[in-house]
């Protein structure tokens, strides 16, 4: 494992921890999109179907369990915890996320590396992950006062994607036959979706001002 991949996994892990910290300690999910969180839970559930069949490393299995467990518990918190669900901005979080599910699934049926159940589900998870942040970005744009933890959460998610691209570039030059178009293109699309957010995040950081996205 190279440094970019490790750093990418760690920022991904940190993003989840920041979100759980916010929800668990402040008992608030203000500014967090349940739609995006549900999509991430579906992403992990469909991607990690191999968790009990293909063993890669203890690290790999543990991380998969952490991402599965955390994504489902975040959804549980927002839907079921009586204090947390009260802080959920239901009226702002209106993105119709099921409109993303069907096109991603059809695309996975059409464009995949092998037409098997596991492979199609894995490809579906990549396409869905690429666009899963959209409801969250829309919600951020509607939120007047983005709190620091929410801003950091989205920043860490974007950093994770950027680091994965560096990891792929590194692996392309150091490993023979390392060409994977489907994860690369969907990963690139995913990272580009964060570009606008990053711009305003750094501007607010540079000017020492509160983060606010233009509507």
């Amino acid at each position: 494992m190279n440094i970019f991949r490790l750093a990418g996994d760690m920022t991904h892990l940190a993003s989840v921890l920041v979100l759980l910290l916010k929800i668990h300690t402040i008992k608030s999910c203000a500014g967090i999109s349940l739609k995006t969180q549900e999509l991430f839970a579906i992403v992990f559930a469909s991607r990690y179907l191999d968790i009990f069949t293909d063993f890669i490393s203890l690290y790999n299995t543990l991380m998969k369990l952490i991402f599965l467990g955390s994504s489902f518990s975040i959804v549980w918190y927002i839907r079921r915890h009586k204090l947390v669900r009260r802080s959920y901005d239901k009226d702002q979080d209106t993105f119709r996320h099921y409109f993303l599910l069907l096109p991603c699934f059809i695309l996975a049926l059409l464009i995949n590396e092998k037409f098997t159940f596991k492979e199609v589900m894995w490809t579906f998870s990549l396409y869905l992950e690429a666009v899963a942040i959209l409801p969250q970005l829309v919600l951020l744009q509607r939120t007047k006062n983005i709190d620091n933890l929410t801003g950091q959460y989205v920043f860490l998610l974007g950093a994770y994607r950027g680091l994965y691209i560096l990891n792929w570039i590194y692996r392309y030059f150091t490993e023979p036959h390392y060409v994977h178009w489907i994860p690369w293109i969907s990963g690139l699309v995913q990272t580009l979706l964060y570009a606008d957010f990053f711009y305003y995040y750094f501007e607010s950081w540079k000017n020492n001002k509160k983060l606010q996205l233009p509507a």
């Binding site: 991949r5 996994d9 991904h12 191999d50 293909d54 890669i56 490393s57 790999n60 991380m63 998969k64 991402f67 590396e113 894995w122 994965y164 990891n167 036959h177 060409v179 994977h180 994860p183």
Partner: peptide, 10 residues
């Protein structure tokens, strides 16, 4: 030909 894809990423 391409080798089997390593699903070693998360």
């Amino acid at each position: 030909q391409s080798p089997p894809k390593p699903k070693d990423e998360l």
